[in-house]
Amino acid sequence: MKKWIAGIIAAAAVIIGVGIYAYQAQQSNVVRIGYQPSDHHAALFVALAKHMFQKEGIKVETYEFKAGPPETQALAAGKIDVAYIGCVPAITAYCKGVPIKIVAGVNQGGSAIVVRKDEANKIKSIKDLKGKKIAELMKGSIQDCIIRMALRKYGLNPNKDVDLIEMSTFNAVQALGAKQIDAFIEPEPGPSLAVYKGYGVRLMDTQDILPNHQCCVLVMTKSFIRDHPDLAKKILKIHIEATKWINEHPKEAAEITAKKLHEPVKVEEIAMKHVIFSYNLNIPSMKIFANFLLKIGYIHHLPNWSDFVDLKLLKEVAG
């Protein structure tokens, strides 16, 4: 019997501990922002480089993630408040019950399928990818969703007719150069870098598969918006300002992303041209993605769009 009591006390201690930990995390005034090492999140890099958060008096901590899925786990666990993240993992997370809202767009397009240079004359279309080894950022990412859509459109089964393997962007570029893979689908600057290094040839931009498709979005946890509406507005204001700045100063923006991602400025100047930076959302394209995710079983129901996408703040801030 004593062991039972000890067990219950131990369990209670763990639950209380977790509760206190979560509570403390909520109380802090530091905004924790998740992002990925990609040009898509240039607005954040610009905001940091231009000290925009400091000027608004906001303290931020940034957390880098390899891809969207681990970022959704951090959102679910309450480890970050704000995320620059692909709309596909955001939709998946929302539908699985992670309490988040999309408050603005980050970018549209901006990923590409690149094939190995010595295979380029054989792979001229999506259907020629049959039997090939293709690296993708991660299962559940927007690139994963788009390549599956494209393969299916050409009658190929993504699970059987091709060998899809997970690889982070810069590893995929190296693997293409080392001929360990035949093709990849990755966000910029991966495609531009592979072309610049002479490793590969652009087969198709994701823009060509679904024009102006929504890619990354700015996501905030519901508790962050509820508990810190002023901070949420300021973060959004900075995001809008930084996005405008990128479009007005493409050259300097390329310098900032080059520094952040440790890439040549020349590569970044090309890469950034393949990304549309906009804080507006292409909602119809997100609905196409959601329907596809439902079809392939990543989600079991569609999101409640009016709850999930909240443009109230954006209207207030951007006017």
Partner: peptide
């Protein structure tokens, strides 16, 4: 690997199918 119970777990984790 790309099959088996271990792979199934990782695949499910990617889409938060806990």
């Amino acid at each position: 690997a790309k099959s088996g119970l271990g792979y199934m777990i990782i695949e499910a984790q990617r889409v938060l199918a806990t």
